[in-house]
Amino acid sequence: MKAELRRLLLGTGSLMLILFLAVGCASIPPQGQSVQGAWRLVSWETVFKDGTVTHPYGKTPTGFIIYEPSGWMSVQVVRDPMPPVPASGHSLIGATLEEKSAAYSAYYAYWGRYSIDASKSKVSHVLTASLLPHEVGRTYERTFSIEGDRLLLTTPPYRSGGKEAFNRLTWQRLPSELRP
C-alpha cells in the first residue's frame, strides 16, 4: 500500500510539475521579447482613419520609456524642435507666460505601475503621476509588439478634431552599456 501511494504521489507530483512548468512557461515571452528595460523614442505618429499621419511631437522627438522588473514604468517625451531657452536665462521662474506655455506644450511625462497581458499583447499603464493632472489614476492600455530591438506601442482608437485616430509609438531598446 505504501509503495502504491508513493508511486501515485510521485506520478501526480511529476504531472503537477509538468503542468506548472507548461502554464508558467506559456506566460513568459520568448527571449528578448520582454518590454522590461529602457527604450529610446524613435517616432510618435498619429494615424487617422483616412491614412493621414501627423507627428504631434515633431519628426524626431526625444523620449524614453522604462519598464522596471518591479512593475513600475516611466515615460518622458520632448518635442522636436525643443522650445528656445527663456530670455530670462536658464529657469522658467522668470519666464513669460508664452515661454512657459511653449515649454509645457513641448513636454509630456507620466509614471506608475504597469502590467502585461501577453496572451493579448497588451501592456497597461496605471498612472500614479502625470504632467497632466487629469490623467492621474487613469489606466492606459497599449497593444505592443517587439521586433528585434524595436518596441511598437499602439493606442486604442480615439477622436481627434472630429476624426478617428490612434497613436503609434516606436521605441528602440537601449544597449546595456547606456542603461543607468
Rank of each mutant, 00 (worst) to 15 (best):
A103R: 03
R142E: 09
E164F: 08
P175Q: 04
K2R: 09
E68R: 07
S91R: 11
K59L: 07
P56F: 13
T96E: 04
A3G: 08
P29G: 05
P156I: 09
Q31F: 04
P56Y: 10
S91F: 11
V123H: 02
S130P: 06
S91A: 06
S121P: 05
R159G: 09
P86F: 12
T170I: 15
L15D: 02
R173V: 00
P175I: 02
P157N: 08
G89Y: 08
Y104T: 02
A165M: 08
P180V: 03
L5T: 14
L151W: 01
L169N: 13
Y104L: 04
K100P: 04
G51C: 04
E177Y: 07
S176G: 00
H90L: 15
R138G: 14
E164S: 10
R142V: 14
S91L: 13
E99Y: 07
R6G: 05
L131Q: 01
S176N: 01
E147R: 00
W111E: 08
W171I: 03
P81N: 00
A102L: 01
L152S: 11
L97K: 11
A106K: 02
L9P: 08
K122I: 03
F20T: 08
T96P: 01
L169E: 14
T170P: 09
K122L: 08
R173E: 00
T46M: 15
Y57M: 14
R159S: 14
L131K: 03
